[in-house]
Structures are given as structure tokens and as C-alpha cells.
């Protein structure tokens, strides 16, 4: 039973990161109905950017400054890569149909992965933990909860996700820009005729999604290895999380992320070999799609003809 607490906590922490990535999927899908398969790569770029900042920081920088700085820089890197991708790859083909956009997204994903391995020669990077008090060492510290060790840094994930989700929810539901976003997602033509600049709304939506993916990358980078393919699996799982929660729904993305994180760890709790861990997310996806195809919190919309 002790183990249960450990796996639950661990699941919540990783679920919070899935939730952050899933929010980006859900926002972009809500606005332009594009499943942005390059989103996992925004996360990877964020992790690399954070590590880059870590390398330039003087070695004695206290972690209390360094960690927020790395998180913010990763967020900015996420914004830059997301907005560039939208402007260069998606905007020119916006009127060419959803299949073209989807294939472009997959192409961008491969491009960014290979660009990252070209630049870094595919060497996995990790925050160095050899010196006591260095960022890496602090990130590797763990506490024992329910019979297993959980890295202290992982406890940061939940409040960060919570804070970003609340800000995002506030922007979407309460502000003028959020109103414009909701209008564009429902009827882009009518929104344009009300004076809303659709291009600008789409750009800002990618900005928000990129910000959150970049920050998620920084968080995972703290205690895990950073490598060019790191965005693939979390990206896929976050996509599943967004679909499970109901794609287009902000609370749904968070709920889906937490569910996927927890289920994944519960599988380990049940002594299933850890190689099967990744299967859990897909099983959840299939079950949800069978029972409630619009997702747990999704709105039941019929396709209009």
C-alpha cells in the first residue's frame, strides 16, 4: 500500500507535465482544427534552451534564481519556435485543407528532431550533478515517499501547471483576446466580419501553446536526459491526454494529462513490466473513444454540412 502513494504522487507529477503540453494541443486544435504533431518538438526545444542558459550561467548562481530563469528562458524559446513554425509552415497552407496541414505538422516534427540531432550530434545532455549545491545536484535530490524516491524538483510541476492553467483559463474566459479566440474557433468568417484579425489570434494562440510546451521541456529537463527524440513520446501522450479530456477543452486537457500520468504509474504499481508502461496511455485512449468519443469533458458537436 505504501507503494501506492509513491506511484500516485509520481503519476500526478508527470501528469502535470503532460497536462501542460496537452493544453497547447487543445488550444491550437480549438482554433484551427489542426493536430499539431510538432508540438512535442516545441517541448524538446524548450528543454535545450533551458540547458543552454544553464551553460552560460556562472557556476555559482544560486538555484533559487537559476531555476526560474531557466524555466522562463525555455518558455520564451517555446514561444519563438511555435510562432516561427506557424508563420513559416502553417500559415501559407492554411486554406489547403486539414490533411495538408497535418502532413506539414508531421514534417515539421521530423525536421526539428533532425535539426536538434544535427546541432548536438545526438549526445544526451544532463544537468551536471557532481558539485554539491549545483543546479543538477539540487534537481537530483529526492525524498522518500511511500517506499520510493521522488525527486524534489518534481513537486514544482504541479504548482507551475496549476498557475499556468489558471492564467490561461482567465485569458480565454474573461478577456477580450479570449473572446476573440472563442469567436474564431466557432466561426472564423463571422469573427472576421466583426473586425477580428484572425491571423493575429492564431499567432497568439501558438504563442501561448509554445510557452507552455517550452516550460514543460524545462521541467522535465531538470531531472531527465535531454536528447533530440525526447519530445516524441510525451508529445504523443499529451495528444492522447487532450483527446481523452475532450480536445478543445482547457479543463479537459489538464484532467486528461493527470489521468494519463496516473494510469501509467498505476500500471507499474500492479507489477506490470515497465516496458508495457507506454501501452497504458493507448489503452485509456481506446476505452474513452469507445465510451465517450468526444472526450470526458468534450462538447458533443455534430459536423455541420
Amino acid at each position: 500500500m505504501d507503494n501506492f502513494i509513491f506511484f500516485l504522487t509520481s503519476g500526478l507529477c508527470i501528469g502535470a507535465v503532460y497536462a501542460l503540453i496537452a493544453l497547447g494541443y487543445t488550444l491550437v486544435y480549438g482554433i484551427i482544427k489542426l493536430i499539431n504533431f510538432a508540438h512535442g518538438e516545441f517541448y524538446m526545444v524548450g528543454a535545450y534552451a533551458g540547458f543552454g542558459i544553464y551553460l552560460v550561467l556562472p557556476s555559482g548562481t544560486p538555484a533559487i534564481f537559476a531555476i526560474p530563469l531557466i524555466i522562463i528562458s525555455s518558455g520564451i524559446a517555446g514561444i519563438i519556435i511555435a510562432v516561427l513554425t506557424e508563420q513559416i509552415a502553417y500559415k501559407p497552407i492554411r486554406k489547403s485543407g486539414r490533411l495538408a496541414a497535418l502532413l506539414t505538422a508531421i514534417g515539421v516534427s521530423f525536421l526539428l528532431q533532425n535539426l536538434a540531432s544535427f546541432i548536438n550530434k545526438a549526445n544526451p545532455l544532463q544537468y551536471s550533478s557532481d558539485k554539491v549545491g549545483s543546479i543538477g545536484e539540487i534537481c537530483q535530490r529526492s525524498v522518500s515517499i511511500g517506499g520510493g524516491g521522488i525527486k524534489i524538483i518534481q513537486f514544482v510541476y504541479i504548482p507551475v501547471t496549476l498557475a499556468l492553467t489558471l492564467i490561461l483559463w482567465y485569458i480565454v474566459m474573461k478577456t477580450n483576446f479570449g473572446r476573440a479566440m472563442r469567436a474564431v474557433s466557432q466561426d472564423p468568417d463571422a469573427a472576421a466580419l466583426m473586425g477580428i484579425n484572425i491571423d493575429s489570434v492564431i499567432r497568439k494562440t501558438f504563442l501561448l501553446g509554445g510557452l507552455m510546451a517550452g516550460i514543460a521541456g524545462a521541467l522535465i529537463g531538470f531531472h531527465s536526459v535531454i536528447e533530440p527524440m525526447m519530445g516524441f513520446m510525451p508529445g504523443l501522450k499529451a495528444f492522447i491526454a487532450a483527446v481523452v479530456g475532450g480536445i478543445g477543452s482547457i479543463p479537459g486537457a489538464v484532467l486528461g494529462g493527470l489521468i494519463i500520468g496516473i494510469v501509467e504509474n498505476m500500471v507499474l504499481f500492479c507489477n506490470v513490466p515497465s516496458g508495457y508502461k507506454d501501452v497504458a496511455a493507448f489503452v485509456v485512449l481506446i476505452l474513452v473513444l469507445l465510451v465517450r468519443p468526444q472526450g470526458i469533458l468534450g462538447r458533443n458537436t455534430r459536423e455541420k454540412v
Binding site: 485569458i171 478577456t175 477580450n176 483576446f177 473572446r179 476573440a180 469567436a183 469573427a191 466583426m194 473586425g195 477580428i196 497568439k204
Partner: peptide, 12 residues
């Protein structure tokens, strides 16, 4: 309120 979008002067 959507119709006022273009006149609104506060930002994010």
C-alpha cells in the same frame, strides 16, 4: 462584446 474587439485598448 466581440464587435468591440477592434476598439479595445488593453492588452494581454
Amino acid at each position: 462584446k466581440i464587435a468591440y474587439h477592434k476598439h479595445i485598448s488593453y492588452n494581454l
